[in-house]
Nucleic acid binder design. Structure first.
Lengths: 356, 356
DNA sequence: CTGAAAGCGCTTACAG
DNA sequence: CTGAAAGCGCTTACAG
């Protein structure tokens, strides 16, 4: 039976009246706080159910917590993020007391900042954010107000936690794998400098730097070639088409993440080429990479585990931790057809210095 | 220059004090309300900037609005939803005063209800939700508290708005297209009854019913075959493998949405078959369907437009509309390779009654 | 174990 | 145009 469905909503006072107890008592029961007799617990619980009472989170937030964690996502189409959300949800479900709320943003400084700010304005009890573009000082200041975990940053922050894949290792795995497959002419497709290099130490910047040094170390410095594109599979495919139809076609492409890697695959298809002629490696191991139609070799940086770990870090902060955590997750290379079916032409074999 | 960075946060009173005006005056400036002189406007604005003041949404929510729209998403991996979110964000950006917040849920009654409830508890000013599984009465009650738009439901609700694709037309386009391509033995892959048929009039239920009737109408009743799988591409591919390796292999499969369609493509690949032998049509026209590696024919129900329209419906409600809107969006078939490369075997031609 | 009182930071009528 | 007062629905010390 329910009352108050229309007109004024049911408040904590209605519950208190119905249960014949004080407002504070109801509050304690709701929060599972100490000092409530079983009898009162019972009466209050019944009243809550009878009235279908739901505490207003705004009101709770005025004094206490909102029981809400915020997650800012800089690109709704990037298929890495669902893994992250999935991992976070699973971890949150174990605890049971917090609700996850996602603020989607567009991939630029202003929109990302706006989304993070919007979550903070809504007084989330903890915030997980992903963005290369916001400066550490702003984040340090934000972290004085609430627990903050930044994903994909190598910052040595003091106020907020960071959780990041080992981009150097991941990129090295990718490039060395290609070299081991016999490739020498390996190109790298990444995002525009405005995005990838807007600050030092960004994941894409590191992957690119590692690509360069891994090539140098293998004596392949002369083959280093970095192609940049705006975000999105289509933009990457356009850039890749130029690369692949040029004079000196690379025999392999290492893409900074799976989205441009799919763009490279598109470009190959459009040019009538296959991964037997140009190997492709991506980064993030998104779900579609494992589909046989793509079979895209990719660096897995365990987004699910990362999402779960981010939640744990927030809960630790709420439980009292005050020193910053800086965790690096080890990536692993998922080898698939896109990088193992290379058949070099005789010219390519010659250039590569093979005897045969 | 900013103060109050540590310790107590900046409040509206701090701004009022600094600007030398009343609290109400600051409130009016923030909300852009009438009756503020340019001079006061100026002083307040300056004070806000100086102090880096951010109004607490919780506090605003106590009396007024939270300037937040909530969107419940029942499956983070379903690639239809990013389109929806993208459309909603674009529309919201035009208005500029509301923040979108997404509550992800798992695809079951309890979790979906929990997520919707969580958004309502947070006093969003409007709510967009997607779920076949919640009963209309509960939604009617919810809609008495806040503007509610349900996506993908054909309900004749009175308290909430609905926005839905024409599932009958969409499914008909798909099946008739396959028939026009010469197919007779067309199977349908959809979700379990527990999900797809949990209530009458659900999108998947309608698509399935339309598949049946379109087949009947074409005199192909004997070929009707419905295969059901749990959500997820992998579950669908397992089910499809049985179907495709059975005695009477269909020459075409109509999948209830793109995710199972990708599962069918996976099954084909695993069985060494191609879409020249078994045509595939999906539903939703997710981004990956357009990738040349998939080139999946699919029914586009314009998720972007749907997301944008949902926001507009909420804004209309806030502006005062009190009658329910029930809008149906027209789908269109995106024809791609997966359904146009069929080469029937001679046996298939014979069975199909072709002369040659 | 239980409850009365104060207060969180805003917005909303209402006077001036 | 401007401001003082009340109040939104909770939680938090603090008494009892």
């Amino acid at each position: 039976m329910s009352t108050g469905q229309r007109g004024r909503a049911v408040t904590i006072d209605d519950v208190a009246a119905r249960a014949g107890v004080s407002r504070s008592a109801v509050s304690k029961v709701i929060r599972g706080a100490y000092g409530v007799s079983a009898a009162m617990m019972d009466r209050v619980t019944t009243a809550i159910e009878d009235l279908e009472y739901r505490p207003r989170v705004s009101a709770r937030g005025m004094r206490g917590s909102t029981y809400t964690f915020g997650l800012e996502i800089p690109d709704v189409f990037n298929q890495f993020f669902p893994k992250l959300i999935d991992g976070a949800m699973a971890q949150l479900a174990k605890d049971g007391s917090y609700q996850l709320v996602v603020a989607p943003a567009d991939l630029n400084h202003i929109e990302v900042t706006r989304a993070i700010q919007a979550l903070a304005d809504r007084q989330v009890d903890g915030l997980v954010a992903i963005t290369p573009m916001v400066d550490p000082e702003w984040l340090e200041r934000l972290s004085r107000r609430l627990p903050l975990v930044m994903l994909g940053r190598h910052d040595l922050s003091i106020g907020y936690d960071t959780l990041v894949g080992d981009d150097d290792l991941g990129a090295r795995l990718a490039v060395q794998h290609l070299i081991a497959q016999g490739h020498r002419n390996i190109a790298h497709v990444t995002l525009t400098e405005a995005i990838a290099e807007s600050r030092p130490g960004l994941p894409h910047g590191i992957r690119c730097a590692t690509y360069r040094s891994a090539m140098e170390e293998a004596g392949l410095g002369e083959y280093i070639r970095v192609v940049r594109a705006e975000p999105g599979e289509r933009a990457a495919s356009v850039a890749a088409r130029d690369l692949l139809s040029g004079d000196d076609r690379p025999t392999a492409v290492f893409a900074a993440h799976d989205e441009p890697a799919l763009g490279v695959l598109r470009a190959l298809d459009e040019l009538g080429l296959t991964t037997a002629q140009v190997a492709v490696v991506g980064y993030d191991d998104t779900e579609i990479a494992g589909h046989p139609r793509m079979s895209l070799t990719s660096v897995n940086q365990s987004g699910t585990a990362m999402g779960a770990r981010a939640i744990t870090l927030l809960l630790e902060r709420i439980a009292g931790r005050t020193t910053a955590a800086h965790e690096v997750m080890e990536p692993r290379l998922m080898v698939r057809d896109s990088s193992t079916q290379w058949h070099p032409t005789s010219r390519e074999r010659r250039r590569a210095g093979h005897v045969n």
